[in-house]
């Protein structure tokens, strides 16, 4: 059964090894994973499990390592390389540990690995946006403020001409621009506060 475990891990790593031959980090990860999985198998046997159950528990405990492998061989298109500096996001869910390997396999199907990672990705995108604003690569004012400001002045100008031509009260309609300035300042203040 131990040979079967080794074969399983060999298969898990086969694709990554083909894409990145002679990768030392990959070889070390494989050795580490194999050692820990074999140790888990031995421990399961020691605690009275059958070889089949011990094998199933050891395999189900590995989880989805595809993202980890992509990270190790540096072929992650999402740019996971920047992840190293961030320590707050834990990528995958701990799982309910069942004594029965059948149920354990069932819980794997609803593993939160994937959902959790997608959430993390969104968070990172948001952080990146903030970072770019802070670095001044984008105008300091937010895009939302620019949008609101544009709407305010379009409405102000439109109202000015519409009112002026319909009422001919040119001497007073210019006050609309004062109101426009006030509205724009209020909008700017609100967006500054939110930031």
């Amino acid at each position: 059964m131990k040979e079967k475990l080794k074969e399983h891990i060999q298969i898990l790593f086969a694709d990554a090894e083909r894409r990145s031959p002679d990768n030392r980090q990959l070889a070390e990860l494989k050795e580490e994973l194999l050692q820990n999985t074999l140790e888990k198998y031995d421990h399961m046997i020691e605690t009275g499990r059958t070889p089949e159950t011990a094998y199933a528990l050891a395999i189900s405990g590995i989880g989805d390592i595809e993202e980890l492998l992509n990270d190790v061989i540096g072929e992650d298109p999402i740019g996971r390389a920047t992840r190293g500096a961030k320590t707050a996001d834990a990528p995958a869910a701990p799982v309910l540990r069942d004594q029965d390997p059948e149920e354990n396999r069932e819980s794997d199907e609803t593993d939160e690995n994937v959902d959790g990672d997608e959430d993390d990705e969104d968070d990172e995108d948001d952080e990146d946006d903030e970072g770019e604003n802070g670095d001044g690569k984008r105008p300091p004012r937010s895009r939302w403020y620019a949008l609101v400001s544009g709407i305010i002045w379009t409405v102000t100008l439109g109202s000015y001409f519409a009112l002026s031509f319909t009422t001919h009260a040119w001497s007073t309609t210019w006050l609309l621009f004062i109101m426009g300035i006030a509205a724009d300042n209020v909008a700017e203040g609100i967006f500054d506060l939110r930031r």
């Binding site: 994973l33 999985t37 989880g63 390592i65 993202e67 961030k86 834990a90």
Partner: peptide, 20 residues
């Protein structure tokens, strides 16, 4: 006996912590 981490989770965290 209620919780354990997937090995994938564990090694990902190890890598992240080591890089940090």
């Amino acid at each position: 006996g209620r919780y354990e981490l997937k090995e994938a989770t564990l090694y990902t965290a190890f890598r992240r912590l080591e890089e940090a």
